[in-house]
Design a protein around this nucleic acid. Structure first.
Length: 616
RNA sequence: GGGGUCGUAGCUCAGUCGGUUAGAGUGCCGGCCUGUCACGCCGGAGGUCGCGAGUUCGAGUCUCGUCGGCCCCGCCA
């Protein structure tokens, strides 16, 4: 053992990264490497260490004959110890090179090393790339999880996306401007995260659901083109692709029409996919109206990798004697069907399983048809006459070997959505989703409003600053539900990658839209007064889009959750298992903020790892 | 708020019909080993079967509740 402790200093700083170690034939190159002990192989005499840093792994050899004391000390090295090694790179002896390692032709003969930090026995193996680890553990020991290959790769990919984004947009005249995180709560949209104001008793900031109003204000201020890679916050329940805080690539520009956004984003994504995954995605993307997307795929974000779509079967049953369908059609209802290629082989149990699923999704009933050897089978078969059969054959809704699931209902959207959900489930189960495909799509012509039954008023489908289509402006007075907006969504493989709209730049139009939503002038003034003021002082036509950076990264990384492309995500209960957030705070903190906390309900569980809440 | 699923050694899992002392692989600890690279060989330690009730002579196993992870519906302009 060295008699005195040695510390990290310039002499021990690396001269080369582990993954970059490469020697010269016949010459020994002196180096210093820093990193983590990934694996050790103690052969009794020789000790081999795989030393890791973010660039890769290199083999270090401790030889008792070359450095006896050093070899002796190396026996104590364990997994994930942090060390600095001084040694010489050399070509590995004949027959001992390792083709599976980038540095496998070389090794470092250790002359000396210092242990920079020990590591406690680990809750899971950092170096194990195959074994899956419980996500609980991964989140609790996130620093170890992030040290693993997959997360290293994902976060580096994410960085690449960010850099590409900044370069692309900056090159096209977009200016990155930061907007406040402590801002005004707005009534529309998701639930806000609130932050109490100490100096304004009883008042609260809201964390932004998006910088929507601020980016519009920036257009009014004449910046012409804005972007921001920005955190947004929504206090809603979590999903694989939804976290309470997430990142948007937020874009806004002036004097534009929809085509400008499409061109900009298609160019952006084309370059991004080339740079990150080496794929040339075809541009321009397909376009589809909301109506068509719902009609054919039962979704406003259809996954076009799935080769089946919904068919209108009303003509097939126009002469049917089947009473329920007869009545349905007479009353203006809909009969629609979803084909399942290869579905003729489904057993009776398989069919009833699909029916069960449709009922869980909200269908009153679902009838299966199957085509076996040119013969139509199923409970509905006898209710389809010759004409219906020939129509069915010509429609392509069912071919030999297929099944067709039929649902009838009075509500076109409801019937379509159930079939759309079924389409996703069945496609996943039967392997109908085309692998390796990137199916991009613009969905346009969304309705401007949807009816909010709870509140008994119209509310925005997109947001209240979305411009109606010029040809639909008259509908605002006569039939707001039929008015279409100038909103658009960018869809990739059934994921909503982003959305945006052309905004309202006319203060009168903005007030009109508010009034359609039964916002009194005073209420609108109270909430959005500053925007209305701004609109009144010279607003250019403007619009923009926001892309979900997390979802984009998830898709590019081939991950199944945005948690895998975020450094520190939260669980479904919106907790951080590593830090323990959210937590109770001290009575003093609450008092300063003029906050009283109600005692927890008797059934409510305590947040994990927290002591009792302070008394109020 | 609701539906589904999982919870057994540090980790990944097995555990039959409810029945003796709860197993395997890996990791960990100790010993041996000078060309390994998932090193090898030998030995050892390690368990609140998530938690709490209930049924039973007997519960990892059955029932109910509860806590937590994940997936989904609602919700998410």
């Amino acid at each position: 053992m060295a008699s005195e402790q040695r510390y990290f200093n310039r002499d021990w700083q690396r001269t080369v990264y582990c993954g970059d170690v490469a020697g010269r034939d016949g010459t020994e190159v002196p180096v210093v490497v820093n990193g983590w002990v990934r694996r050790r192989r103690d052969l009794g005499g020789l000790i081999f260490i795989d030393l890791w840093d973010h660039t890769g792994i290199v083999q270090v050899v401790f030889n008792p004959e070359l450095a006896g004391q050093v070899h002796e000390r190396a026996k104590e090295l364990r997994s994930e110890f942090v060390i600095a090694v001084r040694g010489r790179i050399r070509v590995r002896p004949e027959g001992t090179s390792n083709d599976s390692m980038r540095t496998g032709n070389w090794e470092i003969m250790a002359d000396d090393f210092i242990r920079l930090a020990p590591a406690a026995p680990l809750p899971f193996e950092v170096g194990d790339t195959t074994d899956r680890v419980d996500e609980n553990l991964r989140l609790h020991y996130r620093y170890l999880d992030l040290r693993r290959e997959r997360m290293q790769r994902n976060l580096r990919l994410r960085h690449k996306i960010s850099m590409h984004t900044r370069n692309y947009l900056s090159d096209r005249g977009f200016l990155e401007v930061e907007t406040p995180m402590l801002t005004l709560s707005t009534p529309e949209g998701a639930r806000d995260y609130l932050s109490p104001s100490r100096v304004n008793p009883g008042a609260f900031y809201a964390l932004p659901q998006s910088p929507q109003i601020f980016k519009q204000i920036l257009m009014i201020s004449g910046f012409d083109r804005y972007f921001q890679i920005v955190k947004c916050f929504r206090d809603e329940d979590l999903r694989a692709d939804r976290q309470p805080e997430f990142t948007q690539i937020d874009i806004e520009m002036s004097y534009l029409v929809e085509q400008d956004i499409f061109d900009l984003i298609e160019g952006y994504l084309h370059g991004l996919f080339r740079e990150t995954v080496g794929t040339e995605i075809p541009v321009p993307f397909r376009r589809m109206t909301y109506r068509e997307a719902m009609d054919r795929f039962g979704s406003d974000k259809p996954d076009l990798r799935i080769p089946t779509e919904i068919h209108d079967l009303a003509p097939v049953f126009v002469n049917t004697e089947f009473e329920p369908f007869k009545e349905m059609l007479a009353g203006g209802g809909f009969i629609r069907g979803l084909p399942l290629p290869g579905g003729a082989s489904l057993s009776r149990k398989g069919l009833s399983d699909v029916e069960e699923r449709a009922k869980r999704l909200g269908a009153r009933a679902l009838s299966p048809l199957q085509m076996k050897g040119g013969e139509l089978k199923g409970p509905l078969a006898k209710f389809i006459d010759e004409e219906g059969r020939s129509l069915l054959a010509r429609s392509g809704a069912i071919g030999d070997g297929d099944a067709l699931f039929v649902i009838a209902g009075m509500d076109w959207r409801e019937v379509s959505e159930i079939l759309g959900a079924l389409r996703l489930e069945l496609a996943r189960e039967h392997g109908l989703v085309a692998k390796g495909a990137w199916e991009f799509l613009w969905v346009t012509d969304f309705p401007l409003f949807e009816w909010d039954a709870e509140e008994g008023r119209w509310s925005s489908v997109h947001h209240p600053f979305t411009s109606p289509m010029t040809e639909d402006i008259a509908l605002l007075d006569s039939n707001p539900g039929e008015a279409r907006s100038r909103a658009y969504d960018c869809v990739l493989n059934g994921n909503e990658l982003g959305g945006g709209s052309i905004r309202i730049h006319d203060p009168e139009m903005q007030e009109k839209v508010f009034s359609c939503m039964a916002f009194s002038k005073e209420a609108a003034r109270g909430r959005f007064g500053f925007l209305l003021d701004a609109l009144s002082m010279g607003t250019p036509p403007h619009g923009g889009i926001a892309l979900g950076l997390d979802r984009l990264a998830m898709l590019l990384a081939g991950a199944s959750s945005i948690r895998d492309v975020m450094a520190f995500p939260k669980t479904q209960k919106a907790q951080c298992l590593m830090s323990g957030a959210p937590s109770a705070v001290s009575p003093e903190q609450l008092e300063e903020l003029h906050i009283q906390v109600l005692p927890p309900l008797p059934t409510a569980g305590e947040p994990k790892g927290r002591e009792e809440r302070p008394k109020t």
